[in-house]
């Protein structure tokens, strides 16, 4: 398998798209054009908001239900969902906390392990590249197949069902984020600018110097590329592994349990929670990326 093509996907895209977005608000635009660009910015903001509000209105007025052929029981009105969230805030927060712990702990361990794998592969490329090819194949394995295996493997870990379920869920997230990070870390550590290794050689730099002063800093943008995939991925893995976990806790599990009990409004409240978690974590990531990569191209 070609390593490069196996891992390029959404990241380079989001970078490109970010670049096209910048074009809209080009800061170097001549003063005369400023007003036109302000109008551009306004519509860029306004159009999607109007669209969103329109959907909400259609939803609240039940036009949306007629289009989808749904009823207010399975597709409750937005107002009702918000009321439910307000009424059940402590419980929702408790479940959100459980899911967040799984996602973030798994993300942390997975990314660290993945980076380590990337380093090993970069230091021993002869065996490392083959290893990464195998690791990248893990990418295509459905989480659904992995979650039950890990559930079974962790049965003996603890007497407490909550603890051992937690471990199983964290392991699922770890595995997934590790794969993404290892491949990107390897690329970041090895895809150097042309001549930069020659330059280091002309300074008679030691291998450790080349590693810490050239390879590691070079890998930082790639690290964020990986995180852009694995941050939303970690939330998804956490939700899905909750479906299979022994202990009933977490936002994902609550969505399912409430649907089994036909409490659709509550299920929707949890769906909204899951979406907000995903958006919040991604926003934090983007903020971190913006401040850490400041000054870079």
């Amino acid at each position: 398998m070609n390593l490069r093509s196996s891992m390029n996907p959404p990241e380079e895209i989001s970078v490109r798209i970010a670049a096209t977005q910048q074009d809209v608000s080009n800061p170097e635009a001549p003063a005369a054009d400023r007003r036109r660009f302000d109008a551009e910015n306004l519509t860029t903001l306004l159009y999607p908001i109007v669209f969103g509000v329109l959907i909400l209105i259609l939803w609240q007025t039940q036009v949306l239900h007629r289009i989808l052929g749904a009823d207010t029981f399975t597709l409750p009105l937005p107002g009702r969902i918000l009321t439910i969230i307000a009424d059940n805030a402590p419980e929702i927060l408790m479940n959100a906390r459980a899911t967040a712990i799984v996602a973030l702990t798994g993300l942390l361990f997975g990314s660290m392990l993945g980076y380590l794998l990337g380093v090993i592969a970069a230091v021993f490329p002869k065996w490392g590249i083959g290893g990464l090819t195998v690791v990248s194949a893990f990418n295509a394995i459905p989480i659904i197949a992995v979650a039950p295996i890990l559930n079974n493997l962790t049965k003996d870990f603890s007497r407490d069902a909550d603890t051992r379920s937690m471990l199983a869920k964290i392991l699922v997230v770890t595995l997934m984020t590790m794969v993404v990070m290892s491949i990107n870390a390897y690329r970041g550590l090895t895809e150097l600018k042309p001549y930069s290794e020659d330059l280091m050689k002309s300074y008679a730099a030691r291998r450790t110097d080349v590693f810490f002063k050239l390879r590691v800093p070079n890998s930082v943008p790639f690290l964020f590329t990986a995180l852009r995939v694995s941050v939303p991925g970690s939330v998804i893995c956490a939700l899905v592994s909750e479906y299979f976990a022994e202990y009933i806790v977490g936002v994902g599990r609550q969505i399912r349990e409430n649907i089994v009990l036909a409490q659709y409004a509550t299920a929707w409240a949890y769906i909204l929670t899951a979406c907000l978690m995903g958006i919040l974590l991604y926003a934090i990531l983007l903020a971190a990326e913006g401040s850490l990569l400041k000054g870079r191209r």
Binding site: K193, P194, Y195, S196, D198, L199, S202, K213, L214, P217, N218, V220, G295, R296, R297
Partner: peptide, 14 residues
């Protein structure tokens, strides 16, 4: 030796 390439090869994080 001091060496300068066609490409300036600057470290863009510095």
């Amino acid at each position: 030796y001091g060496i300068v390439f066609q490409n300036p090869v600057l470290y863009d994080w510095r």
